[in-house]
Design a binder for these strands. Structure first.
Lengths: 210, 210
DNA sequence: GTCTATATACAGATAGAC
DNA sequence: GTCTATCTGTATATAGAC
C-alpha cells in the first residue's frame, strides 16, 4: 500500500482559523440583526457553512460566542478623528461634524448594535461598558479635544469642554436617534441640516468669547 | 333535592374581566422586565395565577398579548404637565424640570420599557410610534408650551420653540440616559445637578432676549 | 370560562464515527 | 477538527373534561 499523502499545513491551525473567522462573522451579523434570543446556534452554523458541533468546539457555548461577537463589533463604532481640521472655520467644522455624527448613529446597523448592547447590558455588564467606551466616549473625546484647541485660539470661551461636548452631541442626537430607534420615518435631509445648524448656532451663542 | 344556589353575577363577565386584568398586569411586568423572547406564556399564566389556556382564550396568542401589554405601558410615560408653573423664576423652573426629567428617564423601569420598545420596533412598528408619541413627544410639547409662554413674557427670545425644546431635553438626557441604558454606575447626584445647571445656563445664554 | 393533559416544534448541548 | 445523529429541556399552542 502506498504511503498516505498528508495534506501540507501551514503552522498553527489554518483550516480551523478560517472556520473560526467565518463563525465569528456570521455570529456578528446574526446577533446584531436579531439579538441574542432571536439567534440560534443552528442559524450561526448554517450562516458560517459549518456544523453546529464546530461552533461549540471553537467557542464553548452560545454565551461566550455572543460576548466575543458583540465585543468585536463594539470596537468599530465612534467618529473618525481625522475629520477634525482645526483650521476650518469653526461653524463650518461643527456643522460638518454634526452631520457626520448623525449619519453615523442613525444608520440601521448602528441602531441595531446599540439596541443589542442595551438589551444585553443587564446580563452582560461588560458589553455595556465596552460599547460605551469605544463608541460614545471616544466620540466625546474627539469633540472635547477640538473644543480645547478652539478655546486656545480664542474662538470659544468654554469653561468645561467635556460638559460642552456632551451638550453638543446630546442636542444633536436626541430626535433623529429616537426616530431611528423607534423605526419611524426619518426626517428629510433638509430638516436635519436645518436642525444641525440651529444647534451649532445656539452652541456658538452660548459659548461665544466675551 | 334543593335548588342550586347560583352565584350572583354583575352584568358582563365579571370573573373573566378580573382574570383578564391579572393576565395583563403580569404580562406588562414580565415583558418589560425580560422582553418578548425572554418571557414565556407559562410565566405569564403563573404570574397571573391562571392556567395557560385562559391566557390564550383571552388574548389569542403571545404576539397579541405583547402588543396589548406594551401599548398599555407606553401610555404611562412622559412628564407631568402640572409641574409647570409659569410664575416661578425661569432658571429655577428649568433646573427643576431638568432634574425631574432625568430622574424619570433613568429609572430602571423607564429604561427597561424603552429597551423593550426599541427592541421590538422592527417587528412591531406601531409600538415604536406609540411609545414615541406618548413619551418623548408629549414631554417635548410640555416644554415647548412653556417656552412659548416665557417668550411671550419677554424672558426668552426663542425663534423655534420646538427645536429649542428638543435641544434642551437632548442635552440633558444624553450622558445620564446612556449610563443607565448600558448599566454603568450612575453619576452622583451632585454631578447630575452640576450638569443640569450647566445646561440650563448654557440654554439661557443662547436664548437670552437681546 | 377554566382547568389538566398533550401535540408539536425547536432550542442548546453532546456522543461517536471518520 | 469536523461531521451526522441524538439527547433533553422547554417553548407555543391546542384538545377535551368539567
Amino acid at each position: 500500500m502506498g504511503v498516505a499523502v498528508e495534506e501540507i499545513r501551514a503552522p498553527g491551525r489554518p483550516k480551523s482559523e478560517e472556520k473560526r473567522r467565518e463563525i465569528l462573522k456570521a455570529a456578528v451579523k446574526l446577533f446584531t440583526e436579531k439579538g441574542y434570543e432571536g439567534t440560534s446556534v443552528d442559524d450561526i452554523a448554517q450562516g458560517a457553512g459549518v456544523s453546529k458541533q464546530t461552533v461549540y468546539s471553537h467557542f464553548g457555548n452560545k454565551e461566550a460566542l455572543f460576548a466575543k461577537a458583540v465585543s468585536t463589533k463594539c470596537k468599530q463604532s465612534g467618529i473618525d478623528p481625522d475629520l477634525i481640521d482645526p483650521d476650518v472655520p469653526l461653524r463650518q467644522m461643527l456643522v460638518e461634524l454634526g452631520l457626520r455624527f448623525l449619519g453615523l448613529i442613525t444608520s440601521p446597523e448602528a441602531v441595531r448594535v446599540n439596541c443589542v448592547c442595551t438589551s444585553s447590558a443587564e446580563t452582560h455588564p461588560e458589553l455595556g461598558r465596552l460599547f460605551f467606551e469605544h463608541g460614545p466616549v471616544q466620540t466625546i473625546e474627539v469633540i472635547d479635544e477640538y473644543l480645547v484647541t478652539q478655546n486656545a485660539r480664542g474662538r470659544l470661551a468654554v469653561d468645561d469642554t467635556r460638559q460642552a461636548a456632551w451638550q453638543f452631541l446630546g442636542m444633536l442626537k436626541c430626535e433623529a436617534h429616537m426616530r431611528a430607534q423607534f423605526n419611524l420615518t426619518p426626517q428629510p435631509p433638509s430638516e436635519v441640516k436645518r436642525y444641525v445648524e440651529s444647534c451649532v448656532d445656539m452652541f456658538l451663542r452660548a459659548y461665544a468669547p466675551k
